[in-house]
């Protein structure tokens, strides 16, 4: 039964892309979740630090490359710390805070700009709502809220930078998700299917009145333990973003789109409680609304440590 539910949901979210778009101006923290459900358990804390580098220099119009030239290239270097803790055996809370060491845009007309500063604070909860120990199948509803506490008024020279390059998104974001996990081969093969929806609240400041498009994220993660401490994983992720809207509530044409990533990952466990992983995100399919600068690749290195506060 579970197999069929799994297949039905998978088919729906990957095949049905009508009416959903992504956007060019996605400021704020990058997605750091790898689509799996690591850690967990009562009184178990997991602390992780990650570094992310993202590079973009290709314009897309619809699903085709465009000759349009405006921003020559753009990149960011972001680092964050994530702490999660199992309040009970089923409930895990988490918090994440990051910093942009550089968020830069270089234009074809010999201009450039750069921002640095704190990103937003993300607080989350994950609950083990259903567990079938015999079939090794679990369902986790997840909730996250993004608090725009980061830098949103960064200047470069005499200019307050536009929102797409500010370290903070400036917007409260509410993220609802449902994660399915299934283990095979005595746990050596893990399957995670993550579905989430993110609603961005309208930014209303003296300078800005803007709403990012909502984000629909679906990912399938397959991890296989090739050795006791070494796991190879592959994630297939689909991201749709609705169009953004301006101060009058009108949809902004050249925002929104659909991007699909394939993300190979290698994870190594050492000293029992430490993990290091390297992930490469490659956007193999893009269908943008209007002409937009799109991402070439993202590389993420993560180091994590588990701490068990249960009495021995």
């Amino acid at each position: 039964m579970c197999k069929y539910i799994f297949l039905c949901i998978f088919s729906l979210v990957f095949c049905c892309s009508l009416g959903v778009q992504s956007q060019c101006c996605a400021a704020g923290n990058p997605i750091t979740d790898d689509g799996s459900a690591s850690g967990g358990g009562k009184k178990i804390m997991e602390i992780s630090a990650l570094g992310t580098y993202s590079y973009s220099d290709i314009y897309f119009k619809g699903s085709n490359k465009s000759d349009y030239e405006y921003i020559d290239y753009s990149y960011f270097l972001y680092s964050s710390v994530n702490i999660s803790y199992g309040i009970t055996s089923r409930l895990k809370l988490s918090a994440e805070m990051g910093y942009f060491f550089s968020k830069a845009q270089y234009f074809v007309f010999d201009q450039n700009r750069n921002a640095t500063g704190f990103g937003d604070l993300v607080i989350g909860a994950q609950y083990l709502a259903y567990r079938n120990s015999k079939r090794l199948f679990n369902i986790f509803p997840r909730f996250r809220i993004t608090l725009p506490v980061g830098d949103f008024d960064q200047e470069d020279g005499s200019v307050i930078l536009p929102i797409d390059i500010q370290p903070s998104s400036g917007s409260y974001k509410y993220h609802l998700g449902l994660l399915f996990s299934k283990l095979y081969m005595d746990g050596n093969l893990a399957l995670f299917f993550d579905n989430s929806f993110e609603y961005s609240q309208r930014i209303k400041t003296d300078r800005t009145n803007y709403k990012y498009g909502n984000l629909y994220n679906n990912s399938l993660y397959v991890g296989y333990k090739i050795r006791k401490a070494l796991t190879l994983a592959l994630q297939l992720r689909s991201q749709y973003r609705d169009k953004a809207s301006n101060k009058d509530g009108d949809l902004i044409h050249a925002t929104g789109g659909h991007v699909m990533f394939i993300s190979p990952q290698i994870r190594y466990n050492f000293f029992k409680t430490w993990n290091v992983s390297l992930k490469y995100d490659y956007p193999f399919y893009k269908n943008m609304n209007g002409t937009q600068l799109t991402n070439n690749y993202v590389v993420t290195l993560r180091l994590s440590k588990s701490l068990n506060f249960n009495p021995n």
Partner: peptide, 13 residues
């Protein structure tokens, strides 16, 4: 001293 701002668009001194 001068400071410039716009919500969307690109300003260069």
């Amino acid at each position: 001293s001068f400071v410039w701002e716009v919500d969307l668009g690109d300003i260069f001194v």
